[in-house]
Nucleic acid binder design. Structure first.
Lengths: 231, 231
DNA sequence: AATTATAAAAATGTAGATATTTTTAGATTT
DNA sequence: AAATCTAAAAATATCTACATTTTTATAATT
């Protein structure tokens, strides 16, 4: 998760701690989309005054995970199919662009990193609990994609990518459960990653970019179906 | 300027008012890059308590215009040539992508809007003061580019664009003075815009995208020279 | 059922308390 | 004497508690 790390070696303020916790709680669904975030509850739950709590909320408003209406407080940002499609399409196009730049600019260390992370991801096996499985695969999957994107060499593009990733995160959770617990889905992803790695190492920008776009768009119909089923 | 408008018909909180004013003051250089933002000064200057002031600062940290170090307060974000190049390159690539999508997705209203805004921009003349000239040309130039980008139809891409625009704004101010007060520079821009409009209306995605990229990158050497001269 | 007045709840803000960092001046060492 | 260290003082950042304003809920009235 992208948590705006301002400086190393410092103990974070209460506002920042509350920001981290609340962000996590929104992403993992402890606070549901559209929920009222009542100041009195937040103060109790995060054991903090209203001032720092409002700081945390303000930052999450800037990140689009919370909405504010003046004099009426804060709510968890709504989720919708339309927004999901917009986020996924925007992110897929952006990552396709980043991959093109990465192929142009990435060095040998970049290649090595990708190969390493792809390898680690491909052998997520023999895990104790299903929950472990989900968390480990998710972490390694993210690490793989981060390694690919790093090659573009642009802090700003990586920041923008990170911001869209955060906004996608609540939708991604839905897809993740579907994918990680299906052997065939996992195998499909494994193949897509392999194809992508091959195109990257061959420095085939057009192919890699197209593969990245479609790889990132595959969750859209799945999430659509799952969210439709819920409603 | 992108000011995170949360809801219509509401009187903004003091925190939001301070956010707007401080953002403006940072962009127009009233607060210089690297300046300490002393809470006691901010409180006096914006006539507000520390709580709401910190809210405003937190949002600007999220937008990368302010930096925070725990227990040591806030500073105006630094400026550097490296950052400028990164922002401009990232934004140019992003706008090139947005143009490609806009050509694919834009409707007739989009075309009409572009033609209208381009026309208005081309005839910025007979203005009273030089300052008016600068402000009017800047506003119309922004409106033209906004109209082009709108066609992509993606709120998220437009948000990301807006965020990069805000981050570019302090550098842009430097370039703006150079360009608006030079007849030859203005004429050059006029031609670039005309070429871009022609490519857009012809729905030539590759050409329009390339034109947009180079159009947005032309300020880089100019800003580089001007900032080097200052230092 | 709709309207208004009142009470309760909630959001937002200020002032002052607390904790941390920075400065200053003096003491100690090289 | 210059540099380094130390301890107190001042400045600053951060937080809490309470005050004020606004919104929402309740109850009484038309």
């Amino acid at each position: 998760m992208n948590t705006l790390t301002p400086h190393p070696n410092e103990q974070p303020s209460l506002a920042r701690q509350a920001y981290r916790l609340l962000k996590q709680d929104i992403i993992n669904g402890s606070h549901k989309p559209g929920d009222k975030l009542l100041m009195s509850h937040l103060k109790d739950h995060y054991d903090i005054g209203a001032g720092p709590m409002r700081e945390a909320l303000s930052q999450l408003v800037a990140e689009r995970l919370v909405t504010a209406i003046s004099q009426r407080g804060f709510r968890v940002a709504e989720m919708s199919l339309d927004e999901m499609k917009d986020i996924y399409d925007a992110r897929a196009h952006l990552e396709a662009l980043i991959v093109r730049l990465a192929i142009e600019r990435g060095d040998e260390q970049w290649e090595a990193d990708i190969i390493g992370k792809a390898h680690t991801l491909a052998r997520v096996d023999e895990v104790d609990t299903p929950d472990d499985m989900l968390n480990i695969w998710d972490a390694r999957h993210k690490a793989f994609h981060a390694a690919v994107a790093e090659g573009c060499g642009s802090s700003k593009l990586l920041e923008v990518r990170s911001s869209l990733l955060d906004q996608a995160e609540r939708y991604r959770q839905v897809w993740l459960r579907h994918t990680v617990f299906s052997q065939s889905a996992l195998e499909g992803k494994r193949q897509e990653h392999q194809q992508l790695v091959d195109a990257l190492l061959a420095r085939n920008a057009e192919q890699a970019s197209a593969l990245m776009y479609s790889h990132l768009m595959t969750p859209v119909p799945i999430i659509t179906a799952l969210l439709d089923a819920q409603a």
